[in-house]
Design a protein around this nucleic acid. Structure first.
Lengths: 193, 193
DNA sequence: CGAACTGTACCGGCTGGTCGGTACAGTTCC
DNA sequence: GGAACTGTACCGACCAGCCGGTACAGTTCG
């Protein structure tokens, strides 16, 4: 049996990556390849045809997720915004995510922690984080304000990992105020002890 | 060969939990029992003598870590501090951790994400997080300020997970200002857009 | 003696990866 | 035009190794 339905190999590859994301998120990194393949409507043999090994699949998946996050930041970049801190604002918006994509970002966080168990993925993520940190540092905001905003963004997006509720009214207000703060960074100085 | 050194069974139990923490952190949840036992200077049989099953060991380890974090908060509670927000301040200090224990907290974060792959542990952590959230909510701070401080604390403590540098001067100043903010929560209102 | 182990042997289940097929869409060549 | 061939995309059975758990006989120390 060859190509069963009108599905291109590229579609199958994509389906396998999506299935891997779902299954790994739900059952952990050690989910059997068979289950992932089945979930994508393919046999294990079919999976191996597209990805030489499990590590290969997982690494590809990690690259995919990292790229998706970066794409989220890019999409959150306001083209009319040319003031210092524009990238930081995009990072903030992408991390917290507008209500619609809210679940997706949360899920992607849980997934990434699973993927990180593979040393190769950890290294990949580290390099990516470093790159992002450098870009943010060059965004024109005072280091203190940047540290606050990034910490708060990371905290809001990682909170659901521990099962905390997210996207409460307080969180929405917090997002607004942080965005405001990046536009008037001097305000933070008034909080000096 | 029975009791090799002058080590009490309680010490052996502790050594096993510590070994499990180290090995699981380094090699993941699926590290063989044999390796954990060996690392604690005990045979696999000896491990099974203390912990009926692997799940038993992992669950005990999770409880241990959760208790350690709570102990960290308790230790960070300033007995002379009776103002609103005292628990939040302790949470903040415990999350970021004084320089000495810095590596320990980071490590404990990485470990917990490993343990969370076990559903029973995830449930345990969720319940614990809920309990903590409730205690923080009753700490007497405005919800907005609490949300900011908790998010920033979570962000600072989870950042090393993605490999970002921690404990920079900016971070230290951030900690100070957040502590200051919990003592003068009205200051945050001045940042309203 | 009994608690606290050690060491070995073994079972059973799971899982990653291999491998020999198979279906079929094109392409080539007469 | 059609027979022969090729490459792609997959299937499904199988195997080898690992790992958790069990069983048990022996050993050492308080």
């Amino acid at each position: 049996m060859g190509r069963t339905a009108g599905r291109s190999p590229q579609d199958t590859r994509r389906a396998l990556l999506d299935a891997a994301a779902d299954v790994v998120r739900a059952r952990g990194i050690h989910a059997p390849l068979d289950d992932i393949a089945r979930f994508a409507g393919v046999s294990k043999g079919g999976l191996i045809y597209h990805f030489a090994s499990k590590d290969d699949l997982i690494l590809e998946l990690a690259r995919d997720q990292l790229a998706a996050f970066q794409a989220g930041i890019d999409a959150a970049l306001d083209p009319t915004d040319t003031a210092p801190g524009r990238l930081t604002r995009a990072y903030l918006r992408a991390s917290v995510a507008p209500a619609g994509d809210d679940a997706a970002v949360r899920a992607s966080m849980a997934l990434v922690t699973q993927l990180m168990t593979l040393p190769a993925v950890a290294e990949l993520a580290r390099a990516d984080a470093e790159r992002l940190a450098a870009a943010l540092a060059a965004d024109g905001l005072p280091a203190d304000v940047l540290a606050l905003v990034v910490a708060a963004a990371d905290g809001m997006s990682s909170a659901p990992l521990w099962g905390a509720p997210t996207h409460t009214p307080a969180h929405r207000r917090l997002l607004e105020r942080l965005l405001h703060l990046t536009r008037h960074p001097h305000l933070w100085e008034t909080l000096t002890p």
